[in-house]
Amino acid sequence: MTDEPLLRVRGLTKHFPVRQGLRATGLVRAVDGLDFDVRPGETLGLVGESGCGKTTTGRMLVRLLEPTSGSIEFDGRDITHAGRRELRPLRQELQIIFQDPYASLNPRHTVGRIVAMPLQVNGIKPPGGIKARVQELLELVGLNPEHYNRYPHEFSGGQRQRIGIARALALRPKLIVADEPVSALDVSIQAQVVNLLRNLQRELGLAFVFIAHDLAVIRHFSQRVAVMYLGRIVEIGDRADIYERPQHPYTRALLSAIPDVTQLGPAGRIRLTGDVPTPLDPPSGCRFRTRCWKAQDICATEEPALVPRDGGRQATACHFPEVAAPIFEEVPS
């Protein structure tokens, strides 16, 4: 594995204008200056609550959305504003898996046609023919290749998600953006799909950007984790750093809010008050300050930079990071 990143994102920003009639009345700062790298074969988990911009980020990475500013470099090439023709060779290496297994498959197409779509769109004729390749893919994701001619409505949610995964794999991509791939599935099915994705990653050496709101799922899938809040990354680091030595108060709050089966009864949790503010009018300075128990005057005036600690790979955007205290001994305030 080289140290050269497969995906390099710098200052990535997406602002949606809010219109009333013809006049723009405001800006939704959905994503506001992201920096991160993904190395080949590595998984970066993007985690955050609703409105943090994680889904918008995923759509920009596969260029379903046009970034407002910043840059996306894939495999050394700048694809930030590349047109459809320029993107064509890259499409094969950059694919997406969607959240909703019901909306993500064309109900009028057979499974064979759905999985073959990326091949056909790109005019690729695999050796042995398209059908053989599709059946190989179906087998790879644990479906019966004989079901080539069936329609999506004949499959269960978990099976449909496998079909979506087979489609994403059809072009042999190097990087897959997985946008909440298991959150719409039943608990017992989630684990099947998580395991499938992990096996595929190991066998095919895929890199993933794994987007989820569930820190526990992210933990089982990602080597690196970026925690987002209101369009910003507040903390990024290796899995062990984030889960065992989180420095940002928000990361700590998120971790302690997750109900864990291994702990019965109300645990000593950090309780955040209120909801996530609207990205239409984010708080000044540190965006988390309105819900942070450590906030002081400087937090309202000065935006903390995402700075690495101890020269390591863990970076935290906080004026008062928790450097010493390990998690789960925290006294909630």
Binding site: L64, R91, I96, A103, S104, I114
Partner: peptide, 13 residues
């Protein structure tokens, strides 16, 4: 719908 986005993400014209 996501299946339309999937086709776009694959570079469909």
């Amino acid at each position: 719908r996501e299946f339309v986005e999937a086709a776009r993400a694959s570079g469909a014209g």
